[in-house]
Design a protein around this nucleic acid. Structure first.
Lengths: 211, 211
DNA sequence: GCATCATCAAACTGAACAGTACGGTTTGGG
DNA sequence: CCCAAACCGTACTGTTCAGTTTGATGATGC
């Protein structure tokens, strides 16, 4: 078995894995872990059940791969937005915060993300690893970047805060109330992210505490 | 069948129902709906499976009763604390908010409440009725009372807010970050509610935005 | 053409589990 | 003391489903 052949095979393997993962993702998000049957997953992936078990040892391993993959994609998507957002004046900071908040809220109020969150929360006692990963998309992702923004703004003399952690929690938490708990319990129809006006009012109120 | 007999019977019935409910509560909270078996529930309740099915038509009906009962108890417990908390000066308001926040956070960071939340979130797509009920223990319970407190403080001239809803979300959300998302994903050991110092720092920061 | 490997569909196995049936036992009223 | 209702434990039924087995099909390389 030469190197070229090995590469080709693993490429094909990876394509198949991705195919299975995509089908499984749809089913898991729609049905939850417990109600998703391996037959349905195989069908959705356009793959025989046996092939599925060639690539994954068990349904649980498959779910771990699916959730891990979704979360890392989300983290990657968010990281793209990182850039150097301007925070050198109060209007700039305000615009940056409103913009960032709108983007994040829109992303996490999507029915996919909410379904993902429900599945993870439900199974976190049994698969704590995934639970930690999920919490980090918020804790280590969004919260970390907000903290960074606030620190930069503080260093630029735009705002005054002596407890950045508390400030971060106040802002992110206030905005997050629209999703947790309001959105996470599926009621009827898609969850609506708060409109720009509401976001602005929260940000404005927050900024009054930091000047 | 005379009235006395009917009353007696229904009293005994209610006792048995409660017995079943208590056993089922323990099992549902420990295992979640899907993993809880009716055999385990019957055993935990000290009741035969047959009797269980005399009192409840199905496992799902049983869960609805269990969750509904837990939530109404929580609402009742919280409502007791309502009283007239003093908000007529800034130190009073601050003390009231810190106290209220500490109580609520302690209550909802208990492993029972978190387990309950997980079960409800997971099953809310299938049992939306319960999801609404749960959201209301926070939305209609805590948030409503905070709103009321803030309005009273505003009317007393202690604070200045023109958007009470935003203010309520900012405060409750900021504090709630310790539970959602941090606590809801079970990691290791019991979730620790934030200590008094952290609560005070959030409240203080919030109050800076309202004066 | 032939061997090999990946894949497929379909049937099968074994276990878990909701809900039921049944025969025996306790309890309380008359 | 007797009867009836409530209850108990156990065993059964039917179903669902994860994971396996089988045997066929098609592609790839020699």
């Amino acid at each position: 078995m030469n190197a070229a052949k090995a590469t080709q095979e693993s490429a094909r393997s990876e394509a198949k894995r991705a195919q299975i993962r995509h089908g499984a993702t749809r089913v898991f998000l729609a049905e939850g872990f417990a109600c998703a049957t391996t037959d349905a997953i195989a069908k959705a992936a356009g793959v025989s059940k046996q092939t599925l078990y060639v690539y994954y040892r068990s349904k649980e391993q498959l779910m771990i791969d699916v959730l891990g993959s979704l979360l890392s994609r989300l983290n990657r998507d968010h990281a793209v937005l990182d850039g150097d957002r301007p925070v050198d004046s109060l209007p700039q900071l305000r615009a940056t915060l409103v913009e960032l908040a709108s983007e994040v809220l829109k992303a996490i109020s999507g029915s996919d993300y909410l379904a993902l969150s429900r599945v993870i929360i439900a199974d976190s006692p049994r698969v704590p690893e995934i639970g930690r990963l999920w919490a980090q998309t918020i804790t280590g992702g969004v919260r970390l970047r907000v903290t960074e923004l606030l620190e930069r703004a503080r260093d630029a003399g735009v705002i005054v805060v002596d407890d950045v952690e508390a400030a971060t929690r106040l802002l992110t938490g206030g905005l997050l109330t629209y999703i947790l708990p309001d959105g996470i319990v599926a009621t009827d129809g898609p969850v609506t992210a708060p409109d720009r006006d509401r976001v602005e009012r929260i940000v404005d109120l927050f900024l009054r505490a930091t000047t």
